[in-house]
Simulated assay, not measured.
Amino acid sequence: MQAEFWGILHDGGIESISGDVPGTVSINVSIRYLRQYFPGDGIGFRIELGNCTRFEYQEYDAAPIKDFAAIVAMDPEILSLNSGHVSVVVNCVMGSLTMAYEEASVFLDSGAPVTFDELCAASKAYWDEWRARIKKKVI
C-alpha cells in the first residue's frame, strides 16, 4: 500500500505497537470517525509494516525513541504525512514518527483487510459530510 494512507489517518491516536525491528511491526491506530465507515464494530485500524528496518518517534527538540512502549506512552496523534525517499515521516502533534519498511497492509481492528481505495472513499465521505454540517451551521 502507498505511504499516503498515513495522511488519511489524520487525528488517529497510536494505541499500541508490537513486533521487531528489523522485521514486522504492528501498529493499532484509534480513529473512530473513519472506522465508522466500515462494517462491524470497532474503533480503528491495524497497520502491518513488513520488513521494517527503522521505527522511531522523536518529540521536537528531543532524542529519538525506539522503544515501542515508550512511544505509545508519548500518546502520539497522527497529523500528516511527510514522506521522504528512504524513510516515511509521519508528522504527529508533538513530534514525528520515522519509519523505513518495504510494505504496509491495513486492516480493520476486527481483522478484515482494507484497501487504499476503501480508505480514500471513507475519508472522502467523512469530510464531505463534515463540510455539509459546517455549511449548514453557517447558513
Rank of each mutant, 00 (worst) to 15 (best):
E59Q: 15
N28T: 13
K124M: 11
Y57D: 04
A112K: 14
G7I: 01
E56M: 09
T98R: 14
Q58W: 00
E118I: 04
Q58E: 13
S110C: 05
I27Y: 05
M94W: 11
M74D: 07
I14N: 00
D11W: 06
V21W: 06
A69T: 10
A100D: 12
A63D: 11
M99C: 08
M99S: 06
R46Q: 12
P39Y: 03
G50F: 11
S87P: 00
G12L: 08
D109Q: 04
S26E: 14
Y33N: 09
D128P: 00
M94N: 15
I14F: 01
V138T: 12
K137T: 08
G50I: 08
C120E: 12
V25I: 07
Y126N: 10
W6V: 00
M1N: 02
E15W: 01
K137E: 13
A100Q: 13
T53Q: 07
P64N: 11
Y37F: 15
V138M: 11
F38I: 01
I134E: 10
K124Y: 13
Y33S: 07
L34C: 02
G7A: 06
V86R: 14
W130A: 14
V21P: 01
W130T: 12
A112M: 08
L79E: 14
V86F: 12
Y60E: 10
W127R: 09
L97C: 08
I8V: 11
D41F: 09
Y33P: 12
A125G: 00
S110G: 14
G42I: 06
L119R: 02
G111S: 04
I65R: 10
D75V: 06
G42Q: 02
P76S: 07
A69M: 05
A73K: 09
A100R: 15
E56A: 12
A73S: 10
E56F: 04
A122D: 06
A62I: 01
N82D: 15
I17K: 05
S96A: 13
V29S: 03
V21M: 01
N91I: 14
P39E: 02
T98F: 04
L119A: 03
A69L: 06
V25L: 05
I14D: 02
N28V: 12
K135S: 15
D128H: 06
Y37D: 00
C52D: 03
V88M: 07
N82S: 14
Y60T: 12
I71D: 05
F68I: 05
K135L: 11
T98H: 08
L81I: 07
G44W: 11
S83G: 08
E15F: 00
S123D: 15
F45P: 03
D128E: 12
L9Y: 06
Y33M: 09
S87I: 00
C92N: 01
G111L: 04
E102W: 06
W130S: 14
V106N: 06
F5L: 12
T24K: 14
I134C: 09
S105M: 08
K124I: 14
I47A: 12
S123L: 02
D67S: 08
N91A: 12
P39S: 04
E102K: 10
A121F: 03
S18W: 02
I65L: 14
K136F: 06
F107H: 09
S96N: 09
I14L: 01
P76W: 15
C92P: 00
N91M: 10
G50L: 09
D128W: 07
G50N: 03
T53I: 09
S80A: 15
D128Y: 07
H10L: 03
F45V: 06
M74E: 14
S83M: 07
R35I: 05
I78H: 06
